[in-house]
Simulated assay, not measured.
Amino acid sequence: MKEQFSEAFGNLVNKLQGWFNTTIEYIPNFILAIGVMVASYFAAKYVRKLVNKLVSKKVEQDSISNAISRVTAVVVVALGLFMALGVMNLGKALTSLLAGAGVVGLAIGLALQGTLANTFAGLLLSFRKKIRIGDWVETTGFSGEVMDINLKDFTLKEADNNIVIIPNKTILNNPLKNYSLTTKMRVFLECGVGYESDLEKVEQLTKSVIANTFDQVKSEDEVEFYYTEFGGSSINYLCRFWIDAESMLEKLNAKTKAIIEIKKAYDKEGINIPFPIRTLQFDNKLNVKAPDIQEVFSDN
C-alpha cells in the first residue's frame, strides 16, 4: 500500500513538473498570443473607422455603413484569435472551433433565412447607383419617394403621405420603375369635344395652349395631338407633350395645369366638352291613361 501511494505521488509530481515545464516553455508563445489579440483589437478599431468612412462615401444610409464596418471589425478580431491559437500550437482546438463555427453558422442561417435574405438584399440595394434616397419610384403596386433603405426593409412615402414598408428581398425580386433617373416625363391628356366642333380649330387651339403654358414646350410642333375615336357623346382625342420633371407629383401638377388652361380656352371659344349622354328609345306605344275608377267599380 505504501509503495502504491509512493508511486502515485511520484506520478503526480512528474505530471505537475511536466505541466510546469510546459507552462514555462509556452510563456513566450502565450505572451505573443496576447500581443496578437491586443494588436488585432486595435487593428479592428482602426479598420472599422476606415471601412465606415469609405462605405459612407458610397452609401447614404448610416445603418448599413455601420453594419458593414462592424462585420469587418469582427472578421479582424476572429483572424487575430485564430492566429493566437496557432501561435500557442492549439491546432486541434482551432480545428474544433472552426468545425463548431460551421455548424452554428449553418443552424443560424437556416433559422434566419428570411432575415438574412433581407439583409443581403438591403446591402445590394444600398450599393445600386440607380436607387437613392429621395428618388420617386414605383414597385409592387406602390409609388412614392424613397425615404430609407436599411438592412431589413425599403421605405416609401406615397403621394397621400402614407408610409409603405416593403421587405428588401421583395424589391430585389420585382421590377422597379425609377422616375428620378430621367429629367423628362411625358404627359398624356385625353379629352373629348362635341360633334359640332371644328376639329381643326380644336387641334390648333389645344396645341397653342400647351405651348404657351409650359416653358419646356418650345413650339406647337412639339405637342402631339391625335383624334382617337367617335365616342358615344364626343369625338375623343389624345394629347402628349414632354415636361422637365423627376417625380410623379410634378407630372400630376403639369397635367392639372394643362386641363385648367384648356378648359378656359375652350370656354372662351365656345367649344363644348359634352357630358356622357345616353338616349333611350321606345318603339312600342305605352298606354299611360289610367282607367276610370267608376268604370272599374261598376264592372265589379
Rank of each mutant, 00 (worst) to 15 (best):
K92Q: 07
L94R: 05
S65N: 06
Q61R: 05
L85C: 07
V76K: 01
S65H: 02
V77S: 08
V77N: 10
E60H: 07
Q61C: 14
A67H: 09
L98H: 00
S63H: 06
S69Q: 07
V75G: 06
V77E: 13
L97K: 01
L97Q: 07
L81H: 00
L81V: 15
A73R: 03
T72K: 03
A84L: 06
G80A: 02
L94M: 12
V74T: 09
K92S: 08
N89H: 06
V77Q: 10
V76L: 05
T95Q: 09
S65C: 08
V77W: 01
T95K: 06
A84F: 05
D62T: 11
L81F: 05
A84C: 02
T72N: 11
A67Q: 11
V75Q: 03
M83W: 04
L94I: 06
L79K: 01
L94D: 03
V74C: 05
R70I: 15
S65M: 05
D62Y: 11
A73T: 07
M83R: 01
V77M: 12
L81I: 13
S96L: 14
M83I: 14
L97D: 04
A93H: 03
A78W: 05
G86N: 12
I64R: 04
S65L: 06
M83S: 14
A73Q: 08
L94A: 12
M88W: 02
G80K: 01
V77I: 14
V75T: 13
M83G: 12
V74A: 08
S96F: 14
A78L: 14
A67V: 13
E60W: 00
G91C: 00
L81C: 14
N89I: 02
V71M: 13
G86S: 13
A93I: 14
N89Y: 00
I68Q: 06
N66W: 00
F82D: 03
Q61W: 00
